[in-house]
Structures are given as structure tokens and as C-alpha cells.
Design a protein around this nucleic acid. Structure first.
Lengths: 195, 195
DNA sequence: AATATTTCTTACCATAGGTCAATTTCTATC
DNA sequence: GATAGAAATTGACCTATGGTAAGAAATATT
């Protein structure tokens, strides 16, 4: 919870007193690795803020294969904004990749925060833009880049994550099979051994 | 311009008087097919609203191939939000696929509109969420679906656009070559002839 | 520490989609 | 309506990535 308070104070002009009031709308939870927090098709009106650990958003295709939409390590948000905002059923699943401490943020919290602290809304708009930027980049990459290029981009962007996440997960994020990722890595290792 | 006024009145509580004032911040332009409105790397502080015609956002990879990020027909917005919001160089190009009438919306317009009409900001947030929903769907599809499935999804989602856009463009949106799209279509036609 | 489970690697073959080039069809313009 | 250019199709071949299966390595569980 402290992590969340720090995060908010750092990114918004919220005060300690305001936070103490708003805190009532928050829940703090620990989840073990493997736990599923949201199932595709359910509707949800909460978002998760990760204080410690690692969450993941993913979909299942009709062959039962997982496709990772996003990872959320410490100090990231994860939630289905569609379900949250449009009151539609969730478009993806959320599961826990490492034992995690999360803060569950309800719509009430956001509404109250905006009322108490008008600039809170601005930060929210910032987050939306950020999310769009990130997704645009990803779409472009999926359209334009080879498996190897995508992997290199991934480890460049998320070097720390790369070490925490299994290759199965990384492959499902890159849109390739774990076997292909293994081959890509082998090839990169071979080429680097000449440098 | 009338199309834009109608659009705003339909989606926001803006009044005729307010619009008359705000209008000063807008420019109306006609562009011929083929014109390029924004180059990757430039920075921009305008967005386009399409009254008539068709615009497109696309990137170029290092082999000079085009990858279509988005189409914008009548009553759609198109602009590089990153460049606009983060003051970064544009991540994509915008060109004109059909002779078009567009309204050029500056940052000033948006700022003034939000001041004059507070709910204008809410609509903006709605648009951001919509954009996120659309991109999430696309990412998932690029990760999970075959060329054929992506094409079927495209014609289901944008039946009218399908008839206006060349297959070259559709292919570059789907992330395949025009040749592959042609084969997908042939195969679909073959299968449908048995129904 | 021993065992079970999962992850990663590797080898071999299969396939979707890419590349290139030729041909046909469409469309725009004179 | 003739011609030029662009778009679409097709065929032959190629390549990146997928599928399968087996073993090796790492990790978790008892």
C-alpha cells in the first residue's frame, strides 16, 4: 500500500490527508503465483496496481493457446479498461506470474480521487496516452518486424523483465512459439560469439 | 466544416455559439489523393477530422515497405497523438487515399474547447478509451489469427471500407503481402462456391 | 537429497506466407 | 476508345516460423 501511496504522490498532486480518506476505497491483497484474477468474458470494475510481483494480461484463442497482451511488474497498472470503462465483458484474462502484492483500485476510488483532486484526471489522461503510444509501437512491430527483431526490441525495452519471465511467456508476447524463440536465441548467441 | 459541427454537437454538449467562437481555431482544407500530410519524424500539433474522403496512417520499414496503422474515413479522427501530446516526432506518416475534405484541429482548439465546455474533455477521454479498445483487439488479432481470419474480421468490421480501399492497402493493414491476400480471397471464393 | 514438474533445446519435417516474374484485368487520362 | 499505368492474379519456388517429439536442464515439491 505504501508503494501505491508513494506512486500517487510522485505522479499526482494528491496530499497525505486526501490519500488517507481515499484509502477506504482500496483493498490490498497478496496473490500466489498461478492465481487467475480475471477471466475473459467476466465483467470487472477494478484495476490492479502492482506493488510487488508480476501480473500478466493474456487471451486464449480457439485452440487454447495463450497470447500475452501485457506484463505488469512493480508500479504498473493492469486492468481491462474496456470492461471498466465501457461496462463490457473483459476481453482478456489476468493471471499472476510471481507471488504478488497488489492494490485493487475500484471505480469509486477513481471517481472520488478526481473529485478531491482535479489534477488526478489529468494524470489519468496521461496514462491513456501512454498506453496508446505503447500499443501503436507494438502494432507496428507486429506488422513490420521479424521474430528476431521483436525479441531484440523486447530485451532492449525490458531488460529486467527478460530475466524474470519464462521464454514461454516472452514467446507468447512476441507472437511466436517457445521453440522458435529458442532458435532465435541460439542464432543470436552464435552470431555474438564472433564479436 | 458543417460535418464537423454536426459531429461535435452530436457527441458533446457544445452549443452553436460556442462553436462559432471556436471555429476560429479551425482550418478547412481539401487535399487530393496521394498528398502526404505528415511525415514520420516531423513533429505536429494538429489532428485531422475527415469530413469527406479517406486518410491513412502508415509506417515505412527499413526495406521501404508500408505498414498501415489505421484508416480514417468520414467522421473519423486521425493524428499522431504521441507527437501531439508528448511533443515527440511523429511515429507515422499520413497520406490521402481519396480526394478529401478535412478539418485541421489544433491543440489550441482542444484547449479552448475544454475551457468553454468542460464536458468536451470527457468526450476526449471517451475517444482515448475507444482507441485503446480498438488497438487491443488488433494486437490480439495479430498475435492469434491467421491471414484469412484477419481478412474475414476486417471485412466484417469494415464492409464499406473494403470496397473503397485497394487490396494493397488492406494487405498492408493485415500484415501480409498483396499476393497472399489475393490467394486468401481465391480460397474463400472457392469455398463459398460450395455453399 | 530425491523426485516430479516444468522449461528449454534440438532435430526433423510441414506449412503459411513471402518473393519474383509473367499475365491479366482494371482505371485513369488523353 | 486507345493507351499507359496501376492493381490484381497466378505460378514456381523459397524462407521463416510452426509442429512434433525427445532429451537435457532447470525448478519446484516432498
Amino acid at each position: 500500500m505504501q508503494a501505491f501511496e508513494n506512486y500517487l504522490k510522485h505522479h499526482t498532486p494528491i496530499t497525505g490527508e486526501q490519500f488517507t480518506v481515499l484509502k477506504q476505497e482500496l483493498k490490498e491483497k497478496n496473490y500466489p503465483k498461478g492465481r487467475i484474477l480475471l477471466h475473459e468474458g467476466e465483467s470487472t470494475n477494478v484495476s490492479y496496481f502492482v506493488c510487488k510481483g508480476l501480473l500478466r494480461a493474456y487471451t486464449l484463442d480457439n485452440q487454447g493457446k495463450e497470447h500475452t497482451i501485457q506484463f505488469a511488474p512493480e508500479n504498473w497498472w493492469l486492468g481491462d479498461r474496456n470492461s471498466f470503462y465501457f461496462k463490457e465483458p473483459a476481453a482478456f484474462n489476468i493471471d499472476v506470474l510471481e507471488d504478488s502484492e497488489v492494490v485493487i483500485v475500484s471505480k469509486n476510488f477513481l471517481d472520488s480521487a478526481m473529485e478531491l483532486c482535479p489534477d488526478f484526471g489529468k494524470y489519468n489522461v496521461y496514462l491513456l496516452h501512454n498506453s496508446i503510444r505503447y500499443m501503436q509501437r507494438r502494432i507496428n512491430q507486429l506488422l513490420a518486424a521479424s521474430a528476431e527483431e521483436r525479441y531484440l526490441d523486447f530485451i532492449r525495452l525490458y531488460p529486467k523483465l527478460t530475466l524474470r519471465i519464462s521464454q514461454i511467456m516472452i514467446a507468447s508476447y512476441l507472437g511466436i512459439t517457445p521453440e522458435s524463440l529458442s532458435r532465435v536465441r541460439k542464432e543470436l548467441a552464435r552470431r555474438n560469439s564472433y564479436l
